[in-house]
Each structure stands twice: as C-alpha cells, then as structure tokens.
C-alpha cells in the first residue's frame, strides 16, 4: 500500500506530511521532551497555510496525530474563529480524525493564545502555535547571542527588563507571552497566551508541546513539571482579575473577552473559552445578560477548574 492511499485526501499522506518529515519532527519532539523548555531546531516545512498562522502547531499535530485521536482546535479560546475552523478542517480532511469542541473529549488540543479553562488531564496533549519562540528575542535580536545566553543560563537581561518595568510603572508591564522558567533551567516563551493562563502550565497533567514553524523551533513541557512565571520577591507574579463574572454563564475566575455593544460605551464581558461557557449554560448557569437570568447567587459561585 502506498502512502498516498492511506490518507483520505488523494495525493497526500495521512495528516498531509510525508513520513520522513514526520520522523524528523518526532525526533525533535523526543529531544524537546527530554530537555524541558529548550528550543530544538527543526527543518520546518512550508505548509499549505501561511507562516505565522499556525504552521508550527500544525506540523507538531501532524507528526503526533493518529487515527484514534480526537482533535480540538481553538484560537483566542474559541472553536469558531476563522483560523481555528480552517485548521480543524485541514485535519478532518487530511487525517480523517474525529474533531470536537469539548475540551474533555479531546486527546489533542491545538491552540493559539489560550489554555482552556477546564483543567487538562493525563493523556491529553496541548499543542501551542508559537510566533516568536525566543523569550530573549526582543532584548537581543541575534540568534547567535541568545543561544549563548541560554547555554550559560544567563537570564540577567530578562531580569533587568522586568525590573525596569517595575521601576518605571510600579509593576511588570508584560501582559501576555509572559516568560516562564521551566524545571529550574530554561527560560521559555509560553507563546502569546495572556499571563492569566501561565499558572495553568505549572504541574499540568497534560503534555504541552510548542511549535514555531517560521522560526523552526519545537519545545516542550512534560506533565508534572515546574513552570514558574518570572518575578521578584517584592513583586510577586499576579494575574489579571476581572471585576464582573461572565455575562452569559456567570463564571468567575476565568478569562473574559470584552465585547463592545454600541458606540456609547456599552460593553459586556463573556468567557473567552467558548466551549466552557456553552457547557455551563447547558448546565443551567446564567449571567446578567442571559435571557433567563436567575439573579445574584443563582450560580452558587461556581468557578473554573472546580469540577
């Protein structure tokens, strides 16, 4: 049986990539898992979607996905954003795998910019799309230099940058792609997730894989691994607090999108994780802007990650 006959899309292999490319990516993934937080160079291929639109994540997913997997793809926390739809369709077409929008049902979740609100479980794999994998890139543009700094575990530049933030603004002015230290060794870019999501990376039961296609890097955080957001003793890491619960499902302690309702300052805050929000509404939870709003206290203060 030729490889071309094994995939549902005529002329292309299962999950689009040829087997040699998959092997190359798989070798990089094994190394990435063994050296948590270290960016493994890999011979990223041109993919049929543009660089910067998730080619790294797509290559990682294509290299690991099998016929028995169930795939979920989110962008900004939502399954319905155009790029999430496009990537989900790509794998449904080229690999014929089952897809889902439910976090709990997925074995592989490819994401851009968010970590789902449901706590991920053992056996799940979270694949991040990464635009700029180098956490030091905006402090030092040269690859030859940043590679040396990682080798020497010299992260003084980053400390100075964060400290200058504090001196100037009174707090660290980085709100997303907030750098983390992995397993006490490498400083790593968590991809442009809001720093709200950083704590979810720490000691997660799920395997976290990161793919940067244009920059040709793969890195990983194994399950049960220490992921510490960089901070200072007198300025500990803190996440954003939202003043109101989700206007549709009443969830608290979750990341919210601000939706502008009119041009007179009207706005509402709703869950960024659309699957989480829909599930809660299906369970009867309501928010202030639900048609069947049940009033304060009706939700019993249920929050994310409390199931």
């Amino acid at each position: 049986m030729s490889a071309a006959e094994t995939g549902p899309t005529h002329g292309y292999n299962f999950a689009y990539l040829d087997e040699q490319t998959k092997r190359m990516i798989r070798r990089a993934i094994l190394k990435a898992v063994a050296i948590p937080g270290y960016q493994v160079p890999f011979a990223s291929r041109e993919m049929p979607m543009p660089y910067g639109w998730g080619t790294g994540g797509v290559q990682v997913t294509a290299a690991i996905i099998g016929r028995c997997d169930t795939l979920k793809v989110i962008d900004q926390g939502s399954d319905d954003t155009t790029n999430a739809v496009s990537i989900r369709k790509f794998f449904a077409k080229t690999a014929g795998v089952a897809t889902t929008t439910h976090t709990a049902e997925a074995t592989i979740i490819q994401t851009r910019h968010r970590i789902p609100e449901h706590t991920l479980k053992a056996g799940q794999i979270l694949v991040y799309q990464v635009p700029i994998p180098e956490p030091l890139r905006f402090l030092e543009p040269r690859e030859t230099e940043t590679r040396r700094l990682h080798a020497l575990k010299d992260y003084g530049l980053m400390q100075v940058k964060l400290y200058e933030d504090i001196a100037r603004h009174g707090h660290i002015a980085t709100t997303y792609a907030y750098p983390v230290e992995v397993a006490g060794r490498y400083v790593m870019d968590p991809s442009p997730i809001p720093k709200f999501d950083n704590p979810k990376m720490n000691m997660s039961e799920a395997l976290q894989l990161f793919g940067a296609g244009r920059e040709k890097r793969i890195y990983a955080v194994p399950p049960h691994t220490n992921v510490r957001s960089l901070d200072f003793e007198d300025h500990p890491f803190r996440v954003q607090q939202f003043a109101t619960p989700c206007a549709l499902c009443g969830a608290e302690g979750v990341y919210l999108d601000e939706v502008v309702l009119d041009d007179r300052g009207g706005r509402m805050f709703v869950c960024s994780d659309t699957d989480f929000c829909e599930e809660r509404r299906a369970q009867g939870f309501t928010g202030t802007m639900s048609p069947d709003w049940k009033g304060e206290g009706a939700n019993g203060g249920r929050q994310a990650n409390e199931r």
Binding site: E46, P50, Y51, G52, W53, T55, D75, Q76, G77, T81, T82, N83, R112, H113, R114, P131, A173, T175, Y176, A177, P192, I193, P194, K195, F196, R214, Q240, Y255, L256, D257, E258, S272
Partner: peptide, 25 residues
C-alpha cells in the same frame, strides 16, 4: 518573502485575547 508575508499578514488574525490583557493594563 513567504515567511515575511505570512508573519506580517498574520496580524489580521484575531488578537483580542492579548489586546484584552493590554486594555486592562
């Protein structure tokens, strides 16, 4: 130019989650 156009044009993709974090700040 394939890399450059991809990354420049990816700014068209939604970035509202990160923008939300910046708004708050």
């Amino acid at each position: 130019n394939v890399q450059a156009t991809g990354f420049v044009e990816h700014l068209k993709l939604p970035h509202y989650v990160d923008f939300q974090a910046e708004l708050e700040l």
